[in-house]
Design a binder for these strands. Structure first.
Length: 426
RNA sequence: GGAGAGAUAGCGAAGUGGUCAUAACGCGGCGGUCUUGAAAACCGUUUGAGGUCAAACUCACAAGGGUUCGAAUCCCUUUCUCUCCGCCA
């Protein structure tokens, strides 16, 4: 969400930005917004003046009553009644204009970062860097479910029976590995100065509508029956929600937080649930990073955030690359974002394991996250990034650490969480 | 889940239908006087959103509705906090 003042003063820049994102159908919104805003302010100004009159006269009524000037009081009452009648239609117009304005402002995209590559869709995303050597072993790498089943680590049949498609039982060493990765990720981030959080796993409707669009909500969120509560789709929802309508003192920034939560997603829409495997599922767990900082620091934090993920995967011997989202693939609220992708020796390609976003002040403006500065308050910048999200991450882990005999190597950093094991075997 | 009490600025707290709600009073914060420096004392200052060149002005007393010429104050709904009881890991 942009600042209406910015749109008013820079309509051409806003239009240029829309073109860069190949959303030409939204170009007309800019002029509409400026016109509606003009009408809204005019209408509000008029109403404010009337409300001022009403306040003044109402006060006089009290004075008249106290002095026993009944006739004067009655005359004033009549006048206020008149003002109120006039205000009814004016206030209705005010509300309507405001709603129309907001509706349009919500879909005008955030100004993208200067260095964001221009492109239509995800096929034009740009590879930034590669880390590690993407290798394909001599032997054939099985499908990840087969690797897990071979190690008695997954039971999808039972999960389908109890919960349906898109759920899983992990068991034995694979389940332990799953927990180990999260514990390691937690400690990895704590070591880098992040504050560890376990947030609520359910949030209220008003928080949901604050942190996502209606379409996202429909496609992602599970609602608890009979309650105004939703299962979170990511801990970002509760972590950012915690800052809604707050003013953070400058001295308390930056807030560098790392949160753990299970994540629940309906996955309605384009992809849906995968028939086999744990790539796209209704329930997974995630270690996340969330940063609230001063505007001038968000670029630095952005680089720091995605580098954390890269370092994390590298420490587990998984080759990764970073892919910068081009303008057309960038969500409307984001200044820039990139995907961290892990190497799959089976598919001989990279696949997404994390996503790092700089929201600029867009999210903060929408949610009222402000900083108390010396010379007044201003909107914060917010960022978020995945540290790691198993069980999807297990796919990359197992494929890259697999031996020909079906056993899986445990990289050094995980061993302490695996009871000292250096290998998972059948 | 039941019964009761409550929610006002950074914190504590007064205000119970108008005539001191930006909000008394106290604490804290900031600036200053005094001091070699500090403490103390004293003086000043200290909510946010919108609006304006700047003002004026408007809005916000947990949130949302209602009654009224006028609501922090009365009524309804919701949320949260505290005390007691019940239940539970």
């Amino acid at each position: 969400m942009l600042d209406i003042k910015f749109v008013r003063e820079n309509p051409e820049a806003v239009k240029e930005n829309i073109k860069k994102k190949f959303q030409d159908e939204k170009l007309a919104l800019v002029d509409e917004v400026i016109e509606i805003d003009r009408q809204f302010r005019e209408s509000k100004n008029k109403a404010d003046t009337l409300r001022g009159d009403r306040n003044r006269i109402s006060k006089q009524i009290g004075m008249f009553m106290a002095k026993g000037q009944k006739d004067d009081a009655e005359a004033a009452k009549a006048k206020v009644k008149e003002i109120n009648d006039e205000l009814v239609s004016l206030e209705a117009k005010e509300t309507e204009l405001e709603a129309e304005l907001k509706k349009r402002m919500m879909v005008i995209p955030q100004m993208i970062g200067k260095d964001v590559p221009i492109g239509r869709d995800d096929s034009e995303n740009v590879e930034l860097q590669k880390f590690g050597e993407p290798t394909v072993p001599e032997f054939e790498v099985p499908y990840h479910v087969d690797i897990m089943e071979n190690l008695n680590g997954i039971d999808l049949d039972s999960a389908r029976k109890t919960s349906g498609n898109g759920f899983y039982y992990l068991c034995g060493d694979i389940a332990r590995l799953h927990s180990s990765i999260l514990s390691y990720a937690r400690d990895f981030m704590i070591d880098r100065g992040f504050t560890y959080y376990i947030p609520p796993f359910m949030i209220r409707g008003e928080v949901v509508t604050g942190v996502m669009s209606f379409a996202e909500m429909e496609n992602m969120m599970y609602k608890i029956e009979g309650e105004d509560l939703y299962l979170i789709g990511t801990s970002e929802h509760s972590m950012i929600g915690k800052f809604i309508d707050t003013i953070v003192p400058e001295a308390e920034l930056p807030k560098a937080l790392t949160s753990y939560s299970p994540c629940f997603r309906k996955e309605v829409g384009a992809h849906g649930i995968e028939e086999r495997g744990v790539y796209r599922i209704h329930q997974f767990e995630k270690q996340e990073m969330v940063v609230v900082c001063k505007p001038e620091e968000s670029d630095i934090w952005y680089d720091r955030l995605w580098n954390n993920t890269v370092d994390f995967f590298r420490s587990l011997d998984i080759p990764v690359r970073t892919l910068e989202c081009c303008s057309g693939d960038l969500a409307d609220l984001k200044v820039k974002s990139l995907d961290v992708e892990a190497w799959s020796p089976r598919q001989k390609k990279y696949f997404e394991v994390g996503s790092c976003s700089n929201l600029g002040d867009a999210q903060a403006r929408r949610l009222g996250i402000r900083i108390k500065g010396k010379d007044g308050n201003y909107f914060a910048h917010t960022l978020n990034n995945t540290v790691v999200a198993p069980p999807r991450m297990l796919i990359a882990f197992l494929e890259n650490n697999l031996n020909e005999d079906g056993s899986v190597n445990i990289p050094e950093p995980l061993r302490m969480y695996m009871g000292g094991k250096s290998k998972i075997e059948k």
